[in-house]
């Protein structure tokens, strides 16, 4: 009884929603901290961060938990919604739901679906490129060498590698980021995938940059509403409801739901309108 209860019962589904939801809130906070480097940091810092996020084993583990959480949160949410729809086969002719509940709380499934769509597009735009795109550029800098300009690859050991050496086939790039001495076939350095460049290009694109920026801002609105209900709701689902602390949880939840998406939304706006 008890064993199946934790997997199948309506309450268990809610525990999973709450746990995965709260974990995703943590992820959001982390993700935001990283992304803010697009405003406050330089390209190298951002790319170093991106490298760390894609290679560190602990982070890797966390990222798998995140993927699973998103999947679980979505699938569980869909299951719950389907069940909830079935629980009232004949609908009311007249409903006055706004009299007793907040709009966001009644529309979590719609908001969630939109967020899922956003996550997928977002991952196609950046995550997939970062992970799989063979044409992902590596970060370079231009330096003035008196007579002319020279483009150098930044390498993870803090050194530089003139791009011209690659062009002259003295160095070969393997596995997308590794620099090999062509003759000796020995790895000499690692480069940085230039996510920073990709991101700026995406939002500054002459044709689609504005649309992308607007779409991202809208997505953050959707996220804000989802969090507005979801954050405090998760605590209720897990049984944390004590009049002494409810105010705190709710205020924090509200703050989180507004500030986090707001900061996320500022980034594309900044890139599109204000950054060079």
């Amino acid at each position: 009884m008890a064993k199946s209860a934790i997997l199948k019962s309506s309450l268990a589904k809610k525990y999973w929603m709450a746990l995965t939801g709260l974990f995703l809130c943590l992820f959001l906070a982390g993700h935001l901290a990283g992304n803010l480097q697009l405003i406050f940091g330089n390209a190298l810092q951002f790319n170093q961060y991106a490298l760390f996020m894609t290679t560190n084993p602990a982070v890797k583990l966390l990222s798998y938990v995140t993927y699973i959480s998103i999947l679980f949160h979505a699938i569980d949410g869909i299951l719950l919604t389907v069940q909830n729809q079935r629980a009232r086969p004949i609908k009311y002719a007249k409903e006055n739901a706004s009299a007793n509940s907040a709009w966001a709380s009644r529309n979590m499934a719609v908001l969630g679906t939109l967020i899922l769509v956003f996550i997928v597009t977002h991952m196609v735009n950046f995550w997939a490129k970062m992970h799989f795109d063979a044409n992902m550029p590596l970060q370079t800098i231009m330096i003035d060498t008196g007579g002319g300009k020279q483009e150098l690859y930044l390498t993870t050991d803090g050194d530089y590698l003139p791009k011209v050496r690659v062009e002259q086939k003295l160095v070969t790039i393997k596995n997308r980021t590794e620099f090999y001495d062509t003759g000796a076939d020995v790895k000499i350095k690692d480069g940085y995938k230039d996510l920073h460049k990709i991101t700026f290009a995406f939002f500054q694109d002459a044709k689609y940059g504005l649309i992308a920026t607007i779409a991202y801002v809208i997505a953050m609105f959707v996220l804000a509403f989802h969090l507005l209900h979801g954050f405090a709701s998760a605590f209720q689902s897990l049984g944390a409801n004590n009049p002494k602390y409810n105010g705190l949880i709710r205020s924090f939840g509200k703050g989180f739901a507004i500030i986090v998406p707001l900061l996320f939304a500022i980034i594309p706006v900044y890139i599109h309108f204000f950054a060079k």
Partner: peptide, 18 residues
Amino acid sequence: MVNQMDAEGFGNCTNTGA
């Protein structure tokens, strides 16, 4: 009680507070 509640075909709580 929760087991029976689920068996009766009630929906799930989404904490709307209505």
